[in-house]
Design a protein around this nucleic acid. Sequence first.
DNA 1: CTGAGCACCTGAGGGC
DNA 2: TGCCCTCAGGTGCTCA
Length: 273
Amino acid sequence: MPELAEVESLRLKLEPQILGATVKKVVLRRKDLRYPITPGLAKKLPTQKIESVKRRSKYLLLNTNADQTLVIHLGMTGRFFFADPKVPYDKHDHVIFDLKDGRQLRFRDPRRFGMMFLMDAKTLPENKFFKHLGVEPLTEAFHAEWLYQKCKKAKTPIKSLLMNAKVLVGVGNIYANESLFLSGVRPTRQANRITRQNAEDLCANIKKVLSESIAVGGTSIRDYVGVDETPGLYKLQLYVYGRTGEACQVCQETIKHLTQTGRSSFYCPRCQR
DNA sequence: CTGAGCACCTGAGGGC
DNA sequence: TGCCCTCAGGTGCTCA
């Protein structure tokens, strides 16, 4: 579920808690999530010390003093949290990390669309999941003119382009819908019909929506909660996502819903053209 | 190469 | 209660 804002919120909360921690023991209660968990992970990781907690796209990257990177993707329902070791495992607690100081981190993922790999840090850029990743939206590399040029070349609907990780990473269904609303652009508009002004608005609003969401811990709908079990509060700021049939907060027109490439799109027919 | 659709998996919620 | 259907913060793969 986690889009960039949720993974970044997790990273921000996790970093101060596990930086410098040493892994004592790893229990794999399943050997696969969406893909097999790296064989040997449970054997290799113990005694390694976590030296950095980073993020690329929607992947969380834990680097260790043995130059390994533990790559974690939360998929749709993945969660990472500290638990009292005495509390019995949930049936979806798939990976358990015991730290040397006695704390226990658990990875829970009911749908198992998540991923977990352990690899040599230097092999990450050429890894098949990372090789084709596009630009990070919260960097200077993502700017209006760049987006405009990408749009000019694409025939796909603008929403699909914004959610295409080969172009731009981190923007999922919630933030794509929200930034399109704030920019007054319908999700169905062909990317090559985007104006320079639209590209400017979209670029600014994507940055705005993501950073504002990170500031309040992400968006909690259904089961998502942060490491400390507190829900992300960005749900309170959603204009269109999940609001089919409600009145637009700007113009009172009824919010409409449609399906694009298998995903729900929400928009205001008056505000978005 | 590009774009659309499917597959992977479980659980929640609505209608009957 | 139960069954059956639809839907869900993602993304790699296959096919046209």
